[in-house]
């Protein structure tokens, strides 16, 4: 499941960008132009892949799980046990955001840097290295927003979004939560990708970072099912925070404390990522 996807929230980023005139929007425009040529690929990854995942795992496998001995392991809402589909769907939303983020943050950076050299053209214009970095982050954020929105819509169609929660808007907040999760992945990853000379590291990230996160960070079963020694590790991953946040909001089970904790963790990751990306882009583009 190494498809390409993407991400979110520029408000969080502009704080770090206020030093230079932000011309990042031009970079975004350039990427969007390019994106129009490759939309077909992303229709698949953004719409079909999550849809199929939800149907196969949430509904079909869900029949098996809901009939099994662990049917009550997924908590209750309004006194009724949560079905596997409802348990899984918000977690897959967070995963869609992560996969989009990682998919758009590695090969496209190398492509812009080395293969098609758009970065060289951009840095020769009035754009600064920080503009280029933020432009890329913003573009990926938009992609994450797009894909997450589509997936969220599919979830709703399948009845996997609970209408419960304070004033009924709680579940809608799962969408920005997913976008935040995605940005927490793309901000540092884009900064790292620019330092790479070859693309071999990228497939290792997919296989040894993304897939284990997808499989062990509470998406398919509660982290409490993992061996006790591994549990702290799973709780420390950004994806678990994203999954738990999205799930809590979608099911209406989130508490103010848990939401604050998750948002603080993910925002800190975004801030650290921007700090790091700003350094690596500067070093690479203005040597």
């Amino acid at each position: 499941m190494t498809d390409k996807l993407s991400v979110p929230v520029t408000g969080l980023l502009t704080g770090g960008a206020s030093v230079t005139p932000v011309m990042a929007d031009r970079v975004v425009a350039a990427f969007l132009t390019n994106y129009r040529r490759t939309w077909r690929a992303s229709i698949f990854s953004s719409v079909l892949a999550p849809l199929l995942g939800l149907v196969a795992l949430g509904m079909s496998l869900g029949k098996v799980v809901d009939a099994g001995p662990g049917a009550h392991a997924f908590g209750t809402v309004d006194g009724r046990p949560v079905t596997y589909l409802v348990f899984l769907a918000p977690a897959l939303l967070a995963n869609t955001a992560m996969q989009t983020a990682l998919g758009e943050s590695m090969y496209p950076v190398m492509q812009a840097m080395k293969w098609q050299r758009q970065y060289h053209a951009a840095i020769a214009s009035p754009l600064s290295a920080l503009d280029i970095y933020l432009g890329h982050v913003t573009f990926v954020t938009l992609r994450i927003l797009m894909n997450s929105t589509v997936f969220f819509g599919v979830m709703a169609l399948f009845g996997a979004v609970h209408a419960a929660g304070p004033a009924g808007i709680g579940p809608l907040l799962a969408l920005p939560a997913a976008v935040l999760t995605g940005v927490a992945f793309c901000a540092p990853t884009i900064g790292w990708a620019i330092t790479q000379e070859r693309d071999t590291g990228f497939s290792l990230v997919f296989r040894f970072v993304m897939i284990p996160l997808f499989l062990f960070s509470g998406t398919f079963f509660p982290v409490s099912q993992l061996p006790a020694v591994i549990q702290p590790l799973a709780y420390a991953t950004p994806l678990w925070h994203g999954v738990d946040l999205c799930r809590g909001l979608a099911l209406g089970t989130a508490t103010a404390g848990s939401v604050a904790g998750h948002v603080a963790y993910l925002s800190a990751l975004v801030a650290a990522g921007v700090w790091y990306g700003r350094r690596t882009y500067r070093r690479r583009l203005n040597p």
Binding site: P69, R207, I211, F221
Partner: peptide, 20 residues
């Protein structure tokens, strides 16, 4: 080699405890 192993440990073992 690791990819199917990860799936086995996650879906097979982890989720397996709940499915019976």
């Amino acid at each position: 080699f690791f990819e199917p192993l990860f799936y086995l440990l996650s879906i097979g073992v982890g989720l397996g405890k709940l499915t019976g």
